[in-house]
């Protein structure tokens, strides 16, 4: 546990010691703000549904960018050799890294709360429950995508490659339910279950079902497990 915290804090500091974190957060806020305000006053809706539609799309690029350097960077500079020869397990290392990226994502989400505040002032009949579950759902996909980004960052020492692979895998999960038409009907239930969108839509409707939570937990668990394995196999090359 303590080692996870040590890795996590080092990573958070690394984010904020470089311009990276600030650039990410500002870009995230600007893109979301731009699309949100543009449509908000047009439609004059009293909820954040539009925002909740935009963020998953921005995530597709934002999260792979946030996580691309996590492990690829250490493989590139060689500091992974320090880590793997210290008395710390690969899981502790991977979880600490993942949590750092996830925290940055939560900070990005937190920045969009300004839109929520705007809504509270100008809107009528604000549905607080829907807004809460919407944010909750966004945090969950954020975690799922961060675990994917952590994994793709572990299979290369090139951050650009990690980013591109990350966008690709995240996109597959994002688009999965749109591909339902192309899969045999026997498989479609399964593919639908794998799709992020399916679980997200449940949650943003305010239905927080344990099946949806298990789904997100499994995605995170699966990709973090793969990440640990991918670091482990490097010892066996």
């Amino acid at each position: 546990m303590r080692n996870i915290k040590t890795i996590f804090l080092r990573e958070i500091r690394a984010y904020f010691n470089s311009p990276m974190a600030y650039i990410f957060l500002v870009i995230f806020a600007i893109i979301n703000g731009y699309f949100f305000t543009n449509t908000f006053f047009l439609i004059n809706q009293s909820d954040l549904r539009i925002l909740f539609g935009i963020i998953p799309i921005v995530y597709l690029f934002f999260i792979p960018a946030v996580s691309m350097g996590l492990i690829a960077g250490e493989q590139n500079t060689g500091t992974i050799e320090i880590i793997t020869t210290l008395p710390i397990t690969n899981s502790e290392f991977v979880i600490g890294k993942f949590l750092a990226a996830f925290t940055l994502i939560l900070l990005g989400l937190a920045a969009t709360v300004v839109h929520f505040i705007t809504l509270v002032y100008v809107g009528t009949n604000v549905d607080y429950g829907a807004i809460f579950s919407g944010y909750f759902g966004l945090a969950l996909i954020g975690a799922a995508y961060a675990s994917i980004g952590t994994f793709t960052s572990s299979i290369t020492e090139n951050q650009v490659v990690a980013f591109i692979l990350g966008v690709f895998v995240v996109l597959v999960f994002y688009l999965m339910d749109k591909m339902l038409l192309f899969v045999p009907s026997g498989l479609s239930g399964f593919i639908q279950y794998l799709s992020v969108e399916y679980h997200l839509s449940n949650i943003s409707r305010g239905v927080i079902d344990s099946r949806n939570l298990i789904y997100f937990a499994s995605v995170v668990g699966f990709f973090l497990f793969l990440t640990v394995q991918s670091i482990e196999v490097r010892k066996w090359r």
Partner: peptide, 15 residues
Amino acid sequence: QIGYLAELNPLYSEM
């Protein structure tokens, strides 16, 4: 029990 200095002495240079 081991202290290990790797060949290229990798360090977290931003720290």
